[in-house]
């Protein structure tokens, strides 16, 4: 018992004593913050287009001195002329304030209705403050990134859920029963593992049609064999331990032993894998979006935004850069946390 009491803090110390893990947790923390408070943090609707302010670079029309010379953040109206130039009406300046009232939004499936935004322009609605500039349809890039976080998280959760939900029982039963069942089940897993994950996902999406739902299912299916193989391994290492023997001796049989005694002791690698798999799923989904197989316009999916922004790389590099950075950051975050979890849960250390 004393041994156990000592181990818990060490586990935690290992996890949070690691600097990189802190960075990872911070990134995921921000990410979750964006997901939770998206419409409040984003000053505008992610799909509101304005063809007169297309691909405006960040900082255009922004000044730090107001009309009377006072310090602060001010924006002037910006318009793009059809021939390509951007014109800023410099004699009009409106302050950027915190907690402003903007367009009304619905959140949490219609439970919350509000028009309060974290920041925005105190001025006419056509004067807008674009923190990260606008994209090729004149949509606010920051708002799109913030709302896109929800799509990425959702894809990650659902596909990891599918992978865990199917792969874990499959692998556990395969390892626990052994013999012919194990043999057949593992050959099936071999078949799925023979394809690189992204290729398998592309094939599935191409077969069943494009769209976010199918992407989630496809990426989930692609991760099933990984979980199945992983869990089978840990079930094999656990199933002959003394406490399992003890349960058998007490007269328990079959599945109750597997789910009550074996699986709980074989689940640690699944937690590590799920964190890494979140990163993989988000990356796959962005890749499919980039190829035009995932999210449909005007959904603010990061991969799709990157693909569209690429066309404007020479004239407006920010349109592709920010979604790219967002993908990099989130994938890095989940990977760092996954690595840290693996180190912390490693029984050999």
């Amino acid at each position: 018992m004393t041994d156990r009491q000592k181990r818990a803090p060490r586990w935690r110390r290992r996890l949070f004593g690691n600097g990189l893990a802190i960075v990872g947790f911070a990134i995921i923390g921000f990410f979750l913050l964006f997901v939770t408070f998206a419409p409040f943090l984003a000053p505008y609707s992610p799909t509101h287009q304005s063809l007169r302010t297309t691909y405006v670079p960040p900082g255009t029309g922004v000044t730090y001195r107001g009309p009377d010379g006072e310090l602060g953040l001010f924006v002037s109206p910006v318009t793009r002329s059809p021939v390509g130039g951007i014109s800023v009406t410099e004699d009009e300046k409106y302050p950027v304030r915190l907690f402003v009232r903007g367009a009304e939004y619905e959140w949490a499936f219609g439970l919350i209705r509000s028009d309060l935004r974290l920041f925005g322009v105190d001025g006419p609605p056509n004067v807008r403050f674009h923190l990260l500039g606008t994209d090729e349809q004149g949509r606010d890039l920051f708002s799109r990134l913030v709302h896109g976080a929800w799509i990425s998280l959702f894809i990650g959760l659902i596909s990891v859920g599918i992978g865990v939900g199917v792969g874990v029982p499959f692998g556990a039963i395969s390892g626990f029963l052994g013999g012919a069942t194990d043999m057949i089940a593992q050959r099936l897993v071999d078949m799925l593992l023979a394809f690189p994950g992204i290729l398998l996902a592309i094939v599935l999406v191409a077969t069943f049609g494009t769209g976010l739902t199918n992407v989630m299912i496809a990426v989930g299916i692609a991760s099933i064999p990984i979980y199945a193989r992983l869990v089978r391994g840990s079930v094999l290492s656990v199933k002959n331990r003394e406490y399992v023997e003890a349960a058998r001796a007490m007269g328990k049989r079959g599945m109750p032993i597997l789910f009550r005694h074996v699986l709980p002791n074989a689940i640690a690698p699944v937690i590590v894998q799920s964190s890494l798999q979140m990163a993989v799923a988000i990356l796959f989904a962005a890749g499919l979006g980039f190829l035009g197989l995932g999210a449909r316009p005007p959904q603010p999916e990061w991969g799709l935004m990157l693909a569209r922004g690429r066309e404007y790389l020479a004239v407006a590099p920010h349109v592709a850069t920010f979604p790219g950075l967002a993908i990099v950051a989130v994938v890095l975050g989940f990977n760092l946390v996954g690595d840290a979890l693996r180190d912390a849960l490693d029984p050999r250390r």
Binding site: T47, L51, E136, Q137, T210, R296, P297, P298, R308
Partner: peptide, 23 residues
């Protein structure tokens, strides 16, 4: 082409016409 389709989608929405884009 796709930029035009997206712009049309957004303008149609303003008139109460919901159009999904399929590429």
């Amino acid at each position: 082409d796709i930029q035009i389709a997206e712009a049309i989608q957004s303008q149609l929405a303003a008139a109460g016409i919901v159009a999904e884009i399929e590429t």
